[in-house]
Design a protein around this nucleic acid. Structure first.
Length: 435
RNA sequence: GGAGAGCUGGCCGAGCUGGUCGAAGGCGCCUGACUCGAAAUCAGGUGUACCGGUAACGGUACCGUGGGUUCGAAUCCCACGCUCUCCGCCA
């Protein structure tokens, strides 16, 4: 959420910065100006009214003890004031609710270091690590490899859960578990604290990080009077962990990593990536979350990208770092880098991590602050990034490490986590025939 | 799920027969005095947000959350949430 005060102070400036995200973003802000002016008007009037009321109330209290008749008269007078206050109070509350409603759907302002651009075509490649593996055969996409090896299974998944689900078996299932452990081990050794948060959270929590109210259709929700939502990323519970807290400035930055499943309704993604593991309703991810002082958040973002890259490097996976343009960034982000891993079976780079600074945009919603110079609490900055998506890492390993004979070499650093397995070969396991 | 107790300022804790209570007292913290210095002692100060004001300062709101009663609520009423204890159930 943007700061109402600075929006009012420099409406044109904010509008201009927002316009880099596109016309839709600007439109969300438009009603604020008028509402804010109205609010100010009402507030000033109301405060004066309240002052007169409390004076009148004090008079009633005194007179009641000495002069009953005069007290009753004063009481009648006070009653009139009370009615006025109630009326104005209600009006002010409505205006404030309207402002809140508007502000909650206004996206964050892109940082000035973010390149202009409309969509993913305008993103900028920052650097590339490794090289495309040279294969003397035609590489297969992971879904073909996985099916042939007997480790990825879609028909059964569709039978029990519908589209956009996968069952991993044998080496694939184990690799997910191995990658999770490997990623968390790397990150904890580099200063991140491991947490295992709830996967179901309240609407308030979803609002804190910006998924609600704007993106409800992307979420899975439970039934009941007070529904809970399945987390689309560990960013949600971990960032909200410190809601309404005040850190000592000297304690920051604080870094967390969390391995969780993620659940996404993938509304509006019909027809995209329908094959394979790329776009699922459920997947695993190791997430990195940081709370930082305002002045250090951008340098912490660079470090976070390094940390995410580190696991890909250790796996030997060719990838590149790109910076998202203003028009392609997520709702809460002020600056975002994506890591894209090379998938030879699809001849494409695909996102495997996204690291963002949200500056104080989320912190304002969830009231996370720290005491800086002079002991005054100020809003912290929040950062989050994938470190990295596990399902997509399996995809990358299958495709980048595939051999001409259809087997897959397990990256060396992963072997200790997989019971020493060096090569994935076709797995035979009894399966009935569909009637 | 059932029964009971509780939720007050950074912390502990009074207030809860409704008015002058942003709220006693203590701890912690800050400043000053004393001291070579420190401890102890003494005196003073010590929340957040918003509004008006160049500022000094003034004002409004906040006693788990939301509603209600009332001229007026930390104090009364209702609902909800959370915590603790006991019982049941359960992995």
């Amino acid at each position: 959420m943007l700061d109402l005060k600075s929006v009012i102070q420099d409406f044109d400036g904010v509008e201009r910065r927002l316009s880099r995200r596109g016309e839709g973003a600007v439109a969300t802000l438009r009603p604020v100006r008028e509402l804010a002016a109205r609010r100010r008007e009402l507030n000033v009037a109301l405060e004066g009214m309240k002052k007169r009321q409390s004076e009148a109330n004090a008079r009633v209290g005194q007179l009641m003890r000495t002069d009953k008749a005069a007290g009753e008269a004063a009481r009648a007078e006070a009653r009139v004031l009370s009615d006025q206050v109630k009326g104005s109070d209600e009006e002010l509350r409505q205006v404030e609710a309207a402002i809140e409603k508007v502000l909650l759907v206004v996206p964050n302002l892109p940082h000035e270091s973010v390149p202009d651009g409309k969509d993913e075509k305008d993103n900028v490649v920052v650097r590339t690590w490794g090289e495309k593996p040279r294969l003397d055969f035609v590489p297969k996409p992971h879904w073909e490899l996985g099916e042939a090896l007997g480790i990825l299974e879609w028909p059964q998944a569709a039978k029990i859960s519908g589209a956009r689900f996968t069952i991993s078996k044998g080496a694939a299932a184990r690799m997910e578990r191995a990658l999770a452990a490997f990623f968390v081990d790397v990150h904890t050794s580099r200063g991140y604290r491991e947490v295992l948060p709830p996967y179901l959270v309240t609407a308030e929590t979803m609002t804190g990080t910006g998924q609600l109210p704007k993106f409800e259709e992307d979420l899975f929700r439970t039934q009941g009077e007070t529904p809970l939502y399945l987390i689309p990323t560990a960013e949600v519970p971990v960032t909200n962990m410190h809601r309404d807290e005040i850190f000592e400035g000297s304690d920051l930055p604080i870094s967390y990593c969390a391995w969780t499943p993620c659940f996404r309704a993938e509304a509006g993604a019909a027809g995209k990536d329908t094959r394979g593991l790329i776009r699922q309703h459920q997947f695993h991810k190791v997430e990195l979350v940081k709370f930082a002082r305002a002045e250090e958040s951008l340098s912490e973002l660079e470090k976070m990208v390094d940390d995410a890259q580190e696991v890909l490097k250790r796996l030997g996976l060719h990838h590149r770092v790109i910076q998202l343009c203003a028009g392609d960034m997520g709702f809460s982000a002020t600056k975002t880098y994506d890591l894209e891993v090379w998938l030879p079976g699809q001849e494409a780079y695909r996102e495997i991590s996204s690291c963002s600074s949200c500056d104080d945009f989320q912190a304002r919603r969830i009231r996370v602050r720290y005491r800086g110079e002079g002991g005054k609490p100020r809003l912290a900055h929040t950062l989050n990034g994938s470190g990295v998506a596990i399902g997509r890492t399996v995809v990358a390993i299958l495709e980048q490490c595939q051999q001409a004979d259809g087997t897959v070499l397990v990256p060396e650093v992963l072997r200790p986590y997989m019971g020493g397995l060096e090569r994935i070969v076709p797995e035979k396991f009894p399966r009935g025939v569909e009637r």
